[in-house]
Amino acid sequence: MTKHIVVLGAGYSGLIAAKLAAGHADTAVTLVNARDRFVERVRMHQLAAGQELRDRRLADLLDGTGVSLIVDLVTGIDADAKAVRLANRAEPLSYDTLIYALGSQADVDSVPGVREHAMTVAGFEQASAVRAYGTVAVVGGGLTGIEAATELAETCPDLKVRLVTGGVLGGAFSERGRKHVRRVFDRLRIDVRDEVRVAEVRADGVVLADGEHLSADTVVWTTGFRVSPLAREAGFEVDGHGRMVVDDTLRSVSHPDVYGIGDAAAAHMSTGQELRMACATGIPCAVYAVRAIGDRMAGKQARPLKFRYFNQCVSLGRRDGLIQFVRADDSPIEKVLTGRLAAFYKEAIVKGAYLAQRHPRLVSMA
């Protein structure tokens, strides 16, 4: 009997999961996504800086795979009926197995004024809308903020770019990594205000917790992410952030016919450490989830997720970068790769992540 697998979300994890699932016998796979394009989210800082990106049509990426594509917005999930409600479809979409991969979005509601006055780089439409001019304040000192600030400063040298962060610039890196990031920021003349908290965003800049006003013509908000409320609303067990709680095979702990992958799921290493949001974790989780589904369909015991970290790859413009090598638990070691070689390395990783979308069996064999 043919099993219907429905995949929600065509990001780095969802697209791979759909294509791999379609390779199982006696399965029909439907992929639901709000856009008809695949978004290379790790390039959104380039798009915000005005660079053109290649058009990635989902129809082209799915050609010949047997996956059915529905371009529509998911409005709800009926877990009891095992059906998905869509905005433009009268009849619910029924499933035997659901793969929940709806990803994450920028959190624009945690600080007053962000929704009204700030730009984000979390999605295609948002990054496309960035119109940087004059003075730009990039809020957030994580990888996204560092990449956005350096890309804007390098691509648009007439801009005055400032990065504002609650932590120390590059605090997650080793000493060598932090020093290199600081050198690049100095070279690109990026002003840094670290260890400060933004309390409000206004049309003319940001207000810090101590009341200081930092003027800016454009504010780019890169700190904080949130997930769709659909998992919580459907009655799936979620954590405090609304992420689906899954076991070591990526299956929902409350609904055995549902799997969660990517940013929308709270997956853990065998040590109990939660995986961070990244395509570097979403892609292998997609592979493991589909393997688990296939094992269970074949009457076998599903194999648990095995994962370790190797490095963090950071773009610092198109001609520089930082590859921070890490321990298995993602903590940094002193070994780093910097400069043009690091930029080449990061670009190879980004291209490899897209290549995996075209040929997912390459990663499934790893």
Score class of each variant (00 low, 15 high):
144 T>W: 09
276 R>A: 15
348 A>T: 12
199 A>K: 06
187 R>V: 13
4 H>K: 14
247 D>R: 00
336 V>K: 02
199 A>S: 15
53 L>C: 05
20 L>F: 09
302 A>Y: 06
364 S>E: 15
61 L>Y: 04
100 Y>C: 08
303 R>K: 14
163 L>W: 03
94 S>E: 13
183 R>W: 10
248 D>M: 08
304 P>M: 04
109 D>G: 10
137 A>L: 13
123 G>H: 01
184 V>Q: 08
276 R>H: 15
49 A>S: 14
188 L>H: 06
354 Y>S: 00
50 G>K: 01
129 A>I: 04
8 L>G: 12
60 D>H: 09
141 G>F: 06
119 M>L: 12
294 G>N: 05
237 E>V: 10
22 A>M: 00
348 A>Q: 13
147 E>S: 04
44 M>G: 04
10 A>C: 08
26 D>T: 03
227 V>D: 02
84 V>A: 09
174 S>C: 11
220 V>E: 03
101 A>G: 09
63 D>S: 15
323 I>P: 10
240 G>R: 07
37 R>F: 14
71 V>M: 04
262 G>I: 02
44 M>C: 11
263 D>Q: 00
245 V>N: 12
331 S>T: 12
57 R>K: 13
55 D>Q: 06
196 V>E: 09
7 V>T: 03
72 D>L: 05
338 T>G: 11
200 E>I: 00
284 P>S: 05
157 P>K: 02
35 R>D: 15
359 H>I: 15
36 D>C: 03
135 T>G: 05
164 V>S: 08
219 V>D: 10
363 V>H: 05
219 V>E: 04
112 P>A: 01
128 S>A: 14
326 V>G: 03
132 A>R: 12
296 R>S: 13
155 T>F: 08
109 D>C: 11
239 D>F: 09
181 V>N: 00
85 R>A: 12
227 V>R: 00
342 A>L: 05
305 L>E: 03
157 P>W: 07
157 P>C: 07
354 Y>V: 09
179 K>H: 13
134 G>A: 08
133 Y>C: 12
327 R>G: 14
151 E>S: 12
326 V>Q: 03
360 P>S: 07
187 R>W: 10
157 P>F: 09
355 L>F: 13
286 A>G: 12
231 A>G: 06
283 I>Q: 09
197 R>N: 15
64 G>N: 07
180 H>A: 10
347 E>L: 03
217 D>H: 13
237 E>Q: 14
21 A>Y: 01
15 L>V: 07
3 K>P: 11
95 Y>L: 02
222 T>I: 07
190 I>A: 12
282 G>N: 05
188 L>G: 01
215 S>Y: 11
48 A>T: 05
32 V>F: 03
149 A>N: 10
290 V>W: 01
129 A>L: 10
286 A>K: 02
246 V>S: 08
4 H>D: 11
332 P>F: 00
321 G>Q: 07
318 R>I: 03
321 G>Y: 00
177 G>F: 06
19 K>Y: 07
206 V>H: 02
262 G>C: 10
131 R>T: 14
2 T>M: 13
302 A>Q: 02
34 A>M: 13
17 A>M: 03
285 C>N: 11
112 P>L: 02
169 L>F: 05
74 V>G: 09
345 Y>T: 10
63 D>P: 04
189 R>V: 14
86 L>I: 01
104 S>Y: 01
147 E>K: 01
99 I>K: 02
192 V>P: 07
350 V>R: 13
182 R>W: 11
152 L>P: 06
97 T>G: 00
138 V>A: 00
128 S>E: 13
273 Q>S: 12
143 L>N: 07
